[in-house]
Computed example of a mutant assay.
Amino acid sequence: MREFLGYATRLALFCSMLPILLSASTERADALPPVKLAVFEFELEDFSGGASILPANPSDFEQLKHVTNEARQLIAQSGRYTVVDVSSADAEAVRAHSLRNCDGCDAGIALKFGAQQSLVGFVTRISRMEYTVRFQIRDARTGDVVFNQQTGLRMGAIESWNRGVAWLIKNRLLQNPD
């Protein structure tokens, strides 16, 4: 009986301290510094029927700039990330807008700018009215992919690219606990 009372006392003490322990761990998680994230310019991957015969449309590149700015703004506003300026990056894959095909070279570039992670995003044109938006985040030290999502939506005109990026950031990236 005495042994049971000792156990019951310890259990009661633990249960009374549990809210304190939980709030301390939550406060610690909230106090983590934001992750330094290099957000590179979004790229266009064009699989549409006319991609090989039509010249690149300047409005596509203008829209990609809007998409990139939208992504950077939403990510920075979250407080979870600090966006690292990579505008002076001069690697060939950055200049050629082909980071999505460089097998993780973005991680090394991001690391040179002091980032902990890198984000490469791209819009895939399936047809002139069908697009998907995708981005992946890599650990800058290891090159490992830590986040990889796409909309899976078939969005209309190019103006919808921003909505796809905003949806991914709000509903996937920022909802992801890691």
Rank of each mutant, 00 (worst) to 15 (best):
M1S: 12
E3N: 13
G6P: 01
Y7P: 00
Y7E: 13
R10V: 05
A12M: 04
S16E: 06
L18T: 11
I20C: 04
L21D: 03
R28F: 12
D30K: 10
L32S: 06
L32K: 11
V35P: 08
V35S: 13
K36C: 10
F40L: 05
F40I: 09
E41Y: 02
L44Y: 04
D46R: 01
D46A: 02
D46I: 01
F47P: 00
S48A: 07
A51D: 07
L54C: 03
L54K: 09
N57F: 05
P58Q: 03
F61E: 13
Q63A: 14
K65V: 11
H66A: 13
V67Y: 05
N69C: 02
N69V: 10
R72Y: 02
Q77L: 15
R80L: 07
T82W: 06
V83N: 09
D85E: 08
V86Q: 08
A89H: 12
D90E: 15
D90G: 15
V94I: 09
A96F: 10
L99M: 14
N101E: 15
G104C: 08
D106C: 01
A107P: 02
G108P: 03
L111P: 01
F113V: 07
A115Y: 08
A115G: 08
Q116W: 13
Q116Y: 11
Q117T: 08
G121M: 03
V123F: 12
T124K: 14
I126W: 06
I126Y: 09
I126D: 09
I126A: 09
M129Y: 13
M129G: 14
M129A: 11
M129P: 00
Y131G: 05
Y131L: 13
T132K: 11
R134I: 03
Q136C: 03
I137Y: 06
D139N: 15
A140I: 03
R141A: 08
R141G: 01
T142R: 02
G143Y: 03
G143D: 00
V145H: 01
V145W: 00
F147K: 00
F147T: 04
N148I: 00
Q150Y: 12
L153N: 10
G156A: 12
I158V: 13
I158N: 14
E159G: 15
R163P: 00
G164E: 04
G164K: 04
V165M: 14
I169L: 05
R172H: 02
Q175N: 09
N176I: 11
